[in-house]
Amino acid sequence: MPPRFVDIHCHMLPGIDDGARDSADSLAMALLAVEEGIDTIVVTPHQLGGYVHNRGDEIRVRAVELQELLRAHGIPLRVLPGADVRIDDGMVEKLVSGEVLTVADKRRHVLLELPHELYQPLEPVLDALDSHNITGILTHPERNRGILSRPSLIEPLVERGCLMQVTAGSLAGGFGDAARALAERMCSRGLVHFIATDAHGARSRRPKIRDAYQRCVELAGVEAADAWCSSNPGLAVTGQAVPAGVTAVRPAKKTGWAFWKKAA
């Protein structure tokens, strides 16, 4: 049996960004998440970039309100506050002050979002975060166009201590063949630390993770799949250190390496 899943990246707060439109949408997403085996979700509306109006205190209040709504409807899902943070000027200072949210508001890990169309060096950002004992988690690197054109960027970042979060839907082909191929190669090489839904609604980009978990088992083995979908996110939401570096993989079946070698 698969473990209970913890999702650290989900746009379930209603009416605050491009995720859930209203409370009914949030409830439908929550029901889908529970059906998938998710028992804890970090709600992560966008902050900074085009969403500078989203403030930390507002997200905290809305997360509590959503938890109360789920409880009133008997939906057994724990909700914690967080944010999908666009790398921007003043980001580190706002994380330290709490104006911009870390994962589960623990000030230990932060979801870092690059512009989708390009890659920009992350080392200065990671160094600045390190000085405040905050670890960066790069969200959906397999969907970033700059990284897709240069996947060799990933391994040095992992060796540097940057954590990687792959989108569950990428492993199912929901973001195209190139994103799926890179996500699979990252899993095969142990260059992953989290699988998250990055869900935005109940009809499209839904909070689905079970199929991605099974694919991770095939590509990297049960222990790695459990770590990426359950134990690592479980550590993050409690503010504990997540093992960095390359994950040991024991694939359930052989996988090809041609894409990675060619692209690198």
Rank of each mutant, 00 (worst) to 15 (best):
I87P: 03
E93Q: 15
F5M: 10
L112A: 08
E65F: 02
G161T: 10
L101N: 01
T135D: 06
M1P: 15
A20H: 03
G256Y: 06
L129H: 05
R4P: 07
V100M: 07
Q67I: 03
V246F: 10
A202L: 01
A181T: 09
P233I: 06
M91Y: 05
T255D: 13
G190E: 00
A24G: 11
A236I: 02
M91T: 06
C216P: 00
D7K: 07
P151R: 07
R210E: 11
S23C: 04
L122P: 05
E113V: 11
W257A: 13
P3A: 08
A168L: 10
E159R: 15
V125M: 08
T139H: 02
D17G: 07
S149W: 11
V246R: 13
A264Y: 10
S231Q: 13
D105W: 06
E159T: 14
H200Y: 01
G50N: 14
W228Y: 15
S170Y: 04
G50S: 14
V110E: 00
D226F: 03
W260E: 12
H109S: 11
R21K: 13
W228K: 08
E155W: 07
R62C: 01
R108K: 13
D25F: 01
V6H: 03
M164D: 10
F259G: 07
P207R: 04
A33I: 00
R206P: 00
Y119R: 05
R250M: 12
T238M: 13
D7V: 03
L219G: 00
L77G: 09
A181F: 02
L153D: 08
C162D: 09
S97D: 12
I41E: 05
G90R: 12
V61A: 14
E218I: 03
P251L: 07
V52M: 12
G201T: 02
A225I: 05
H11S: 02
C10G: 02
D177V: 12
G221Y: 03
R143S: 08
R205G: 00
A236Y: 04
V110S: 02
L129M: 06
M164R: 11
L148H: 09
S131D: 13
R60M: 01
V237M: 06
H46M: 07
T135S: 12
R185H: 14
A72H: 12
G50F: 12
L111G: 07
L153Y: 14
I75K: 09
P115L: 01
N144L: 11
E99D: 15
W228R: 05
E93I: 12
D7F: 04
L126P: 08
R62G: 04
A199V: 02
E36R: 07
S131V: 11
S204G: 04
L191P: 03
A128W: 05
A212V: 01
A248P: 08
E117T: 13
S23E: 13
A248V: 13
I147V: 15
